[in-house]
Amino acid sequence: AEKTGIVNVSSSLNVREGASTSSKVIGSLSGNTKVTIVGEEGAFYKIEYKGSHSYVAKEYIKDIKDE
């Protein structure tokens, strides 16, 4: 089941290729951006990003809701 969340950062949140802080950064999301969460892996959520799937750190996503 998909969930949505809100990016909870003051500046921007790195979007990564994989579920690791050493993964390549492929983009960023600004605070209060709504994201669609399709899964989770460790400390990361797998999200829909620009037509494919990428990862963001869970600690920076708030207001998780089931869609």
Rank of each mutant, 00 (worst) to 15 (best):
E67R: 10
V56M: 02
T4G: 05
L29V: 08
Y45L: 06
K65E: 11
N32P: 05
V7R: 02
Y49I: 03
D66G: 10
T21G: 09
E40M: 07
I26S: 04
K3R: 14
L29P: 01
Y60M: 07
E41V: 11
G42R: 04
H53E: 07
N14S: 14
T33D: 08
R16M: 15
V7W: 02
K24I: 07
A1H: 14
E41W: 07
K34F: 09
E48D: 08
F44M: 04
K24P: 10
T21C: 15
H53D: 05
E17A: 12
K24C: 07
L29A: 02
G42C: 05
I37W: 01
S52E: 08
I26R: 04
T21F: 15
S10R: 12
K3L: 10
S23Q: 03
N8Q: 10
S28H: 14
E17P: 02
K46G: 02
V15C: 06
I6E: 04
K34T: 09
I37F: 00
Y49R: 00
K34M: 12
S52V: 10
A43M: 11
S10P: 11
N14K: 13
E48N: 10
G27Q: 02
N32G: 15
T36S: 08
I26A: 04
K34L: 12
E41I: 09
V15P: 01
V38Y: 07
E67L: 13
E2K: 15
S28K: 14
I64Y: 09
E40V: 07
T33Q: 10
V35Q: 00
E40W: 06
S30M: 14
K50I: 06
G31L: 10
Y60R: 04
V35Y: 03
K58T: 03
S12P: 09
S12K: 12
K24Y: 05
D66M: 14
Y60G: 11
H53K: 06
S54F: 15
R16E: 01
G51H: 05
E67F: 11
K58N: 01
S10Y: 08
Y49T: 01
A1P: 13
S23V: 02
T33I: 08
S10W: 08
T21R: 10
S23R: 03
E59K: 13
S11M: 10
V15E: 01
S10H: 11
A1N: 12
K34I: 14
V56H: 00
E59S: 08
V7E: 02
S22L: 11
V15F: 02
A1D: 09
G18E: 12
T33Y: 06
I61E: 01
T21L: 15
I64Q: 06
Y49W: 10
G39H: 03
G31H: 15
K65H: 11
I26D: 01
D63R: 11
G18K: 13
G42S: 04
S12V: 12
I37G: 00
N32Y: 11
E67N: 13
S12M: 12
S52C: 09
E2S: 15
S52L: 11
N32C: 14
S20V: 04
Y55H: 01
G18R: 12
G51S: 06
N14E: 15
V15K: 01
R16G: 02
A19D: 02
G27Y: 03
K46W: 05
D63K: 10
A57R: 11
I64H: 07
I26M: 06
L13E: 03
N8E: 08
T4P: 05
F44H: 03
V7N: 02
L29M: 05
T21W: 14
V15Q: 03
A1I: 14
N32D: 08
N14L: 15
S23E: 04
K58P: 00
L29R: 01
G39I: 02
D63G: 08
S23Y: 06
E59G: 07
T4D: 04
S52P: 02
A43C: 12
K65W: 10
D63P: 12
F44P: 00
S11K: 11
D66S: 12
N32K: 08
E48Q: 11
S54G: 15
N32I: 05
S28T: 14
T33F: 06
S28G: 06
Y49K: 00
S20W: 06
L13R: 02
T33S: 10
V7D: 02
V38P: 01
V9K: 10
G27A: 05
G42N: 07
V25Y: 04
N32A: 08
V56K: 00
G18D: 08
K24E: 06
Y45I: 03
K58W: 02
K62V: 14
T36P: 02
Y45Q: 01
S52N: 09
H53F: 14
E17I: 10
G18P: 01
I47N: 00
I64D: 07
V25R: 04
N14R: 12
Y60P: 02
F44R: 00
G39Y: 03
S12E: 10
Y49N: 01
T36F: 13
G39E: 04
G42Y: 05
S11C: 15
K3M: 10
I61A: 01
A19S: 07
E67H: 12
V9S: 12
L13G: 04
R16F: 15
S30W: 11
S10Q: 12
T33N: 05
D63L: 15
S28M: 12
L13T: 08
G18M: 10
V56Q: 00
E40S: 07
S30R: 14
K62W: 10
V56F: 01
A43N: 12
S10I: 12
V38K: 05
H53L: 11
L29D: 00
R16H: 15
E17Q: 09
K50E: 11
D63S: 10
L13Y: 04
G39L: 03
G42L: 05
T33C: 09
F44D: 02
E67A: 13
T33M: 10
G18N: 09
V38L: 12
K3I: 09
